Simulated scan of single mutants.
Amino acid sequence: MSDPIPSSPAAARRPVTIVTGGSRGIGRAVAERLARDGHDLVITYRERAADAEAVADGLRAAGADVAVLSADLGDLASTATIFPAAIERFGRVTGLVNNAGITGRIGTFLEVDIEESREVFAVNDLAPILLCQQAVEHMATNRGGEGGAIVNVSSGAATTGSANTYIPYAMSKAALDALTTGLSKEYGPYGVRVNTVSPGTTHTEIHAAAGRPNAPEERAPRIPMRRAGQPDEIAGAVAFLLGPDASYITGAILRVAGGN
């Protein structure tokens, strides 16, 4: 984590948002957009610390106060340190973006590795559950909080099932959508808005990690807009759901998928 910087009354009035996996891909684009929108930020990364710090430098240049945390979201003990560190650093958190996620290797259902799937569900579901619990404890008005907003970054795979590609990943994202639905209903009365942004195929490193680096180009002809998305196009939707223009939106699943 970056060295603490004493907060000022002016800084305390700025939104403070946690973005998991904020050092690259969609998470980086979200953090950059939020910095421009006036948020202070906590970004997490699992590896490539130098890259994370370089992203943080850019966010600071845009006017944000930034903390950088190393966290493995496949490890709940590590995940549990994120929110307390953010509170210690900034004194409060107003937003949470559950962005970090993994797909597992692309392949048919019979090729699914169970241990790899265990990690997919740990990162994509158990970590967001824990972080949402911590967020609600801090934000909910019936717990003494001032309210806040959570955005879960899901996937269009949650509704297609991703046959012949990564069915467990699709399952994990469907579960994340269910988290949004249930949590929005339970804590809507207490000032916590919970929404989902559901991207379609987007140009990020996640495809190479899954074993198919050219997936965006391969899928483009089947997308109504005939192209994959860019991370900043997803970031705009996340920023909207965190912002004041979405003050009466909760439980929504906003699909950003080029028409798919």
Rank of each mutant, 00 (worst) to 15 (best):
T180L: 03
L176W: 00
N152R: 02
A12T: 14
L41R: 06
A174Q: 05
A50K: 15
G258N: 06
L34G: 07
V68P: 05
G101M: 08
A163L: 15
L69T: 05
I18N: 01
G243K: 02
T20I: 03
K185E: 13
T94P: 11
I150S: 01
V66Q: 02
P199Q: 09
S117M: 13
V197H: 03
P9V: 10
V151N: 01
Q134G: 05
A52Q: 01
R33A: 12
A64M: 00
L96S: 02
A210E: 08
N195D: 09
I87Y: 02
T17E: 00
L176Y: 00
Y45R: 06
L183C: 09
V66S: 02
G191N: 11
R105P: 11
H39Q: 04
I18G: 02
G251W: 03
S70F: 02
A174Y: 05
A163E: 08
L110C: 05
N99V: 07
A11K: 11
G74K: 11
R212N: 14
P199N: 09
Y248H: 11
T44L: 05
A208W: 05
A56I: 06
V93Q: 03
G27N: 03
S117E: 10
P84F: 09
G191F: 13
G236I: 07
E205H: 10
I5L: 11
G147D: 10
R105F: 06
T196M: 03
V30N: 01
G91T: 11
R143P: 09
P84T: 06
T196R: 00
D113N: 15
G161V: 02
A11M: 09
A54M: 10
R24T: 08
P4D: 07
L41Q: 05
K173R: 09
A122R: 11
A35T: 04
S172A: 12
I102K: 07
I249A: 01
E119K: 14
G38E: 03
V93C: 13
P199M: 10
D125E: 08
E218V: 13
T202R: 02
N214E: 15
S8I: 04
Y166S: 14
R222P: 03
D57C: 04
G148V: 06
E115A: 15
A77V: 14
A215T: 11
A239V: 13
I82G: 03
E137L: 12
S78Q: 08
E47Q: 14
L183R: 07
V197W: 01
I43R: 00
D72K: 13
R13F: 04
T141R: 11
V55D: 01
R28K: 15
D125N: 13
